[in-house]
Structures are given as C-alpha cells and as structure tokens.
C-alpha cells in the first residue's frame, strides 16, 4: 500500500442561528425554514439571552481558524 495519497478533508458548512427562533440555519439564509420569519432580523430571545454576543465571538473564531489554515498553506476547504 502506498503512502502517497494526501490527507485532505473538507470543512463542514457554516451554520448560524435564526435570530427569530434560535434554531440553526445555513449561513446566508434569509427566510428561516423553521419559523418562516426573517432569519437576519434580531428577535427578543436572540438579543436578550446573549446569542448575539456568542455568535459574534464564534465568527471571530472562524476567521482566526481560517487565517491559521491559510498560513499553513491549506485552502479553506
């Protein structure tokens, strides 16, 4: 068996929370498939229970992780 084949995996797609019903949707979703409302418009629960701050930190983590991967010469997947 050869050791020549490269180890290359794919990264999972990015999900974010619907800012209305706080269920996961794919990044860029406009109309939430769960609640039918605008997934980008901040709702009370999203705002008051701290999800906005947490998702902002997550976004920073993703950017940092992507930069780290780029610096190592790997594409973003």
């Amino acid at each position: 068996m050869s050791t020549a084949s490269p180890l290359h995996g794919q990264a999972p797609p990015v999900l974010v929370l619907c800012r209305q019903c706080v269920q996961y949707v794919f990044d860029g979703t406009v109309i939430c498939p769960h609640c039918g409302r605008d997934a980008r418009e901040t709702g009370e629960r999203y705002r008051d229970e701290g999800y906005l701050a947490i998702e902002t930190m997550q976004r920073i983590d993703r950017l940092r992780s992507a930069a780290e991967a780029r610096m190592s010469g790997k594409p973003d997947g």
């Binding site: 290359h8 993703r62 973003d76 997947g77």
Partner: peptide
C-alpha cells in the same frame, strides 16, 4: 477541532 485539524484530517 480547528479548521486546520479538519482539513488535515
């Protein structure tokens, strides 16, 4: 898991 962990398996 970092992105690098995932891409590099």
């Amino acid at each position: 898991l970092s992105l690098r962990d995932q891409l590099d398996c």
